[in-house]
Simulated scan of single mutants.
Amino acid sequence: MNDTKSSAEDLAILEQLNLDYNRSDQAGDAKRLGEFLAEDFIVQTPGVTRNREEYLDDIAKPRPFKDQVLHEVKIRILGDVALIHGRVTYTMIADGVEHDALYTDVYQKREGVWVCVSACAIAPGA
């Protein structure tokens, strides 16, 4: 397999994982999210660092927001590591206020499979 074909396939996989990550977040689907989070996954949001188990427990709780929409997604593949940068908008259920958030997710190809090893979000209200 040449690098161009591999890169195109990897890009398609990462695009789908990014969609799945955001859909899982909105829907509280910890099961799907857990399928591609690495065992050593760490997430940081304002004031909080969580490991994989803590994050999945949090995702499984009722979501405090709705209407999450992806914008400006950029995927950079750097060998066996990929960075996904993006912006999302969402509305907080409690007060109806719309917010913007920025995120960067880090994926690593381990034994031929892309897994999310780290995530960082600047997410007001979350």
Rank of each mutant, 00 (worst) to 15 (best):
N2W: 10
N2Y: 13
T4N: 10
S6G: 11
S6L: 15
E9L: 15
L11N: 12
A12G: 09
Q16L: 08
Q16I: 02
L17M: 04
L17H: 14
L17G: 07
N18D: 04
N22H: 13
N22F: 08
N22I: 05
S24T: 02
D25G: 09
Q26L: 15
A27S: 14
G28W: 10
D29K: 06
A30S: 06
K31C: 05
R32H: 14
R32I: 13
E35N: 03
E35D: 01
L37V: 06
D40G: 03
V43G: 09
P46Y: 15
P46T: 14
G47I: 10
V48N: 15
V48S: 13
R50A: 05
R52K: 07
D57V: 09
P62F: 07
P62N: 15
P64N: 13
F65G: 10
F65S: 14
Q68E: 03
V69Y: 03
V69P: 02
L70S: 07
E72M: 02
V73W: 01
K74C: 08
K74E: 13
I75R: 09
I75D: 07
R76C: 10
I77A: 12
L78I: 14
L78N: 14
V81F: 07
R87K: 08
Y90E: 04
T91P: 02
I93P: 04
I93N: 09
A94M: 12
G96I: 05
G96T: 07
G96L: 11
E98K: 15
E98F: 00
H99S: 10
H99M: 09
D100S: 05
Y103I: 05
Y103Q: 01
T104E: 10
V106L: 05
V106Q: 04
Y107N: 00
Y107E: 01
Q108A: 11
Q108R: 15
Q108F: 11
K109W: 08
R110I: 04
R110N: 03
G112I: 05
V115Y: 00
V115L: 00
V115W: 00
V117N: 05
S118P: 03
A119Y: 05
A119E: 00
A121L: 13
I122L: 03
A126P: 01
